[in-house]
Amino acid sequence: MIKIENVSRNYKTGETVVKALKKVSLEIADGDFLSIAGPSGSGKTTLLNLIGCIDALDEGEISINGEKVTTMGKKGMTEFRRNNLGFIFQTYNLIPVLSAYENVAFVLSILNVSEEETKKRTMAILKEVGLEGMENRRPGKLSGGQQQRVAIARALIKNPQIVLADEPTANLDSKTGEEILRLMKTMNEKYKTTFIFSTHDQMVMDYASRLVLLHDGTIISDERRNG
């Protein structure tokens, strides 16, 4: 369970203060497939970053499974992210010099998982995301959809409680985007992992089981759907 209470986040650009989030409160249940939607500058990515413990809030509180992430400190947050969170980025952010296998396996190496176990789990997750036989290809030799599959595998390999995806289909064509969404939905159902997306893509919103709409840093609607 993720609990967001009266969270505000301001950015300073020169003399101007931009209020990215204004006293936002939200509760996200375990296993949710939640989409945070809204126009550019509405605060989607900011909210995602705060939940992902990669940004600091100015006001309010966020707790995940009862743990207050706001009081964890830098080291604590790093450790929390390492153990509990998975990330999927719009531009995949794969390491170009590493193969698909190495891009996924490195997550386990920072968790000090044994080499044997790493191999077993990496091969299994790559097979699950449909990349069997492509383990040794570098990102440059993979299509956009395949790269995003590697990113999904990288996010899921450590069995995180929560996966945060910032516009995961924005760089993909609609067919590939839908394949990726279907894959994530399958993973969500199979592993009961909480998925939180930021998007302004209608297709992603349609897949979500819960849609939160943001506008000017405020939640303007929060609805459950049959995604």
């Binding site: 790093t78 929390f80 992210r81 390492r82 969170l85 952010n93 390491i95 920072i110």
Partner: peptide
């Protein structure tokens, strides 16, 4: 960006 990704995934700054 790679650096940001690695840090987001929990890789220690020292590593």
């Amino acid at each position: 960006r790679e650096l940001g990704m690695m840090r987001a995934l929990g890789m220690k700054d020292n590593d």
